[in-house]
Design a protein around this nucleic acid. Sequence first.
RNA 1: GGAGGCGUCGCCUAGUCCGGUCGAUGGCGCCCGCCUGCUAAGCGGGUUGGGGUCUCAAAGCCCCUCGCGGGUUCAAAUCCCGCCGCCUCCGCCA
Length: 438
Amino acid sequence: MIDLKTLREDPERVRESQRRRGEDASVVDRLLAADERRRAAESEYGALRNEQKELGKRIGPLQGALKKVADADRPAVQAELDGLMSGATALAERVRSAESGRDAADAEAASLLAGLSNLIDLDAPVGGEDDFAVVEEVGVRRDFAAEGIEVRDHVELGELLGAIDIERGAKVSGSRFYYLTGVGALLELALVNHAIALAGGNGFTPMIPPALVKPAAMEGTGFLGQAAENVYRLEADDMYLVGTAEVPLAAYHSDEILDASSLPRRYVGYSPCYRREAGSHGKDTRGIFRVHWFDKVEMFSYCAPEDAAAEHGRLLGWERQFMDSLELPYRVIDVASGDLGASAARKYDIEAWVPSQERYREVTSTSNCTEFQARRLRIRMRDGDGVRPVATLNGTLVAITRTIVALLENHQQADGSVRVPAALRPYLGGRETLDPLR
RNA sequence: GGAGGCGUCGCCUAGUCCGGUCGAUGGCGCCCGCCUGCUAAGCGGGUUGGGGUCUCAAAGCCCCUCGCGGGUUCAAAUCCCGCCGCCUCCGCCA
């Protein structure tokens, strides 16, 4: 959620953010009005409550006095007490009604606030999904025709290598499921180990978080808004399967106040990711590019808001370092305002070249969520200036399935074998190629 | 799944039986000051978080906050109900 003070002081900034996202800007004015009502209701309740407490303070001692006073004086004290009591009874009714009025006003403002997306970074390119800005293209795309190689896609290669079993995935779990088998399974473990080692070297604490979370964690990270239809929910237990380790890693410090000197805190989580892929019927139906479940290694940072933009740059740098180590050609894009998702103020995707499709496809993504998630999850920092929300950021180190797609296709050789990039060899028993089973 | 115990402002803790004097006690830690060749000790003060109001800002004032939610009452840390979490024992189990 955004800061109500920002909203009051500069509502136009918030409206502009909403417009650039292609979202409703009128919530700003409705929220402003609701906030006004909320504050008035709070004041009214506070005043009445104060009155009630003052009155209560006189009743207690009087009741004590009643017991000790001489019989002759008792009627007078009793009468005074009765008078106070009847006033208190009437007042209690007004307090109750003011309280429910305040609660209603609070709830209204909170629900409007919860529906408001994060304040966008005004430097993000404006527009929809296709209006991203290319930051940089990196690496060399192979000229397979020149090499005399007829490009095989990852499905074909995966089958040749005995690395991916899509048919049985569908048999057991349905469409968009798969098994990683043999070298495919080993490849996942190698990628994970390589990623965790790289992150560990950069000061990240390795984490294996729960993939099943309570509603508060899902809400707090902003996935129950427009992204809700893509989240798996376990009705019987009111729990959610996470779509990314970002969720449990963000909620890890919820309701905590972190010492400023302990920031930035960096965690790298390895977890399964579950996505319903609602609304993507017919899209990427072949292979394991778009699936309902995959494993991922995700970086997550908590830092001071003023350091967030720089931290975002560092996360992108580590993502690039990982891609470079896999010797994959890719480009970095600055995601446009309309495609950011509710939580992100700014987002960079890395898209790897996919030879069989002859285009760049998203393999990693890093978002600066500024204080948006931290406000919802009540994650704050304490420094000389007092207590204030932290900023949270996330970035993919390796999304297994898509990285395997890129790896197999880009490093394929004429005979259907796949060259293993040097950085991965130590994690694959030193092997330099993955070879067809035949 | 069954039985019992516990949950207090960073940590520990008093208070809960018998509602108002708890707008929560004490210790530790931490912060500021005094004292002192230095350090330690000692002495004095401060130290939950949120909201509202006022203000250029601050101070001040008010409300809420004793795991969470509801109820009883003029009044709830305290009484009642539900839930959550932790611990112990039993049962089952990767």
